[in-house]
Design a protein around this nucleic acid. Structure first.
Lengths: 214, 214
DNA sequence: TAGATTGTTAATCGATTAACAATC
DNA sequence: TAGATTGTTAATCGATTAACAATC
């Protein structure tokens, strides 16, 4: 429960946290109260030393021969990421990718609930995957009213900046950007670009000239 | 045209290549024959030093006061990634995410063409976004016949390993894995996991405790 | 020429890997 | 006890950042 010390944790490690969360939750559901770094590492095909260090950095104390208490580590990681309490999110752009994300049930395990979606096309308004879809013109006002923390941006790239502006006007504190556009936002708004082309590039290179799998 | 020297290029840099490609193609389309590192860096909100070094690592020679020849850098990066020649890909799992990827027009600029898709559900068979959809039982044979290089895995996690096995049996050399499952495949098959939870974790952390945007 | 930009070498930083004593 | 596993410190590695001469 101790809590992760902040400044010391790099993005690389943060990206591994959801992996640990997944494995530890599953082990916990199977009734295992403790997990050793080696076991978690094997489940994820990671280096055991990395896992042990990451789990230690969590602030939770492990016991030799026994491992780390699953429940405590889960709580520590969830607390660090803010995935223990649920925040509200909106999604803009109910195209194929947007619909896919709307239908993704995993967000609830990741601290977010999409409470409203928006689209320019009035034909798409109504409900998708149980989430109400409104005209994009109502985004800013609705986001503000619902005190939304996160905006998910899945619009075509031509609309990206304008819709991001609306999200900012709506008081959103972070934008998960699935477009390839470099958004201009005030410095206090966090933007994370999700770049599928980058992943494909890494795989393409490995297909071309060999190298280690992953 | 020289070509990127292989061993020296890390994944971090490879992930930036598609960004450069995007900007340089756009500049090239606007008729600009040369691009300086500084200009590219500004367009992508990257450090100019990083960009200059990356472009240099491309093997293409830049000229002071002028910059790098756009066409040559584009060709060098495309060649390095294998995005100059088009390879065939199959997709398995025509759910929301799978449909989204099927409808994504950008793959052609990234060296891949999805030639067939597969699903367990016969109701989904037919055509989606112009791509024929077959029963998943036909995956291995079809992939082999079409000499497919890449498999895109967007099935529910329970089916992930079985479908990956079919892809391997079909002679696929790489799998772009959108499930959270750690796949077991022969060592010569490359797997790249696309981990949306990781990106969300990074953003969540920044929402919680501030830090630099990105 | 003057000044912007590259190419290259060195310094810094952070993450990974290794080694080993401490401990249950 | 014996042996697996953690915690910690040091070594290695790679990427980023800085500095500056070379060049168009």
């Amino acid at each position: 429960m101790s809590g992760v010390r902040k400044a010391e944790v790099g993005d690389k490690m943060v990206r591994r946290f959801p992996l640990y969360l997944r494995v530890l939750r599953e082990m916990s559901a199977r009734g295992l109260s403790h997990a050793s770094g080696a076991v978690v590492a094997r489940a994820l095909a990671l280096d055991p030393i990395v896992v042990r260090k990451d789990l230690a950095r969590t602030g939770v104390r492990g016991r030799p021969r026994v491992g780390f208490p699953t429940g405590e580590v889960i709580a520590a990681i969830e607390g660090f990421l803010g995935w223990n309490a649920c925040s509200e999110a909106v999604l803009a752009g109910v195209g194929r990718l947007g619909s896919a994300l709307l239908g993704y049930p995993g967000f609830s395990q990741q601290g977010f609930k999409i409470v409203a979606a928006f689209d320019v096309n009035p034909k798409r308004c109504g409900k998708v995957a149980g989430v109400p879809v409104y005209p994009v013109a109502q985004l800013a006002e609705t986001a503000r009213r619902l005190r939304v923390a996160l905006g998910i941006l899945t619009v075509p790239e031509e609309q990206a900046q304008a819709v991001a502006d609306a999200m900012v006007a709506g008081g959103v504190r972070g934008i998960w950007n699935f477009t390839p556009v470099q958004l201009a936002v005030p410095p206090e708004v966090r933007v994370k670009r999700e770049d599928l082309a980058a992943g494909l590039a890494v795989l393409s290179r490995r297909l071309r000239d060999g190298g280690a799998a992953s």
